[in-house]
Amino acid sequence: MTGLDRMAAVAATEFRLAFRNRWVLLSTLAFTLFALALAFLGSGPSGALKADALTLTAASLSTLTVYLVPLMALLVSYDSIAGEIERGTLALVLATPLKRGELVLTKFCGHLAVLTLAIAIGYGIAGAVIAGVHGATDAGLLAWGRLVATAVLLGAAFIALGMALSGLARQAGTAAALAIGAWLILVVLYDLALLGAVIVDQGGVFTKTMFPALVLANPGDAFRLYNLALIETNAPVAGLDGLARTLPFPVSSALVVLALWLFAGLAAAWALTRRIRP
């Protein structure tokens, strides 16, 4: 009973702080604006297809989400352990009956609640506007719902990663640098490196065997492949996304990858926090 209450206290305080720092407002605004911009300016409904604005925007938004959601997730979580060490509050908190595992788990929950709220509001507003203007089909609503749900899962994986980096760095500045580095590597450079390898390999062994597995192993790519593979449109796909059509694994394996990243991140955050002597 008191165990649950103290865990609720940590999560509530994290949530309240994120709210006070205008963090929720900022990220919600960013998600809404980008989603609307994609719907109405970018690859919005082309005359020929006329199919379903919601589905098409979900497809293009899944690419954008890969950049935006991990960034937001890392920004909200990088300070969580290191910042408390620096401010001296970690020693205070760990002097109370709160266990370290409870601390990691509940901070994670608080961060995730914040990110979920921002994604739900941002994509919710954008989805409602698109549906209002262009109408909505069942398939479109399903694609949109899938996008929002998997974006939350992607965010959760990166929050756990950010907390692990925070526990590793133990200094807020270093943790921020590590978080940006992780984002750059996982979201930007990883894909470039794989594409480069494919080009060099010219359809050889690497492209046929290792490449699909390596793409799927990346949380951002797993998220994108999952969403694109389940959207049946003729929307143009490019680069790694072409793999979505020819993936040699069941589509659900992408979700497994995301879940593995999430659990690995949480386990690392817990293990690293246990080693801290505040």
Binding site: T13, R16, N21, G88, T89, L92, P97
Partner: peptide, 17 residues
């Protein structure tokens, strides 16, 4: 843990609370 309370030398509570 229940018996002991602690006040470190340098503690900065979250400014926004």
């Amino acid at each position: 843990r229940r018996a002991v309370s602690y006040l470190p030398e340098q503690v900065v509570f979250p400014k926004a609370l």
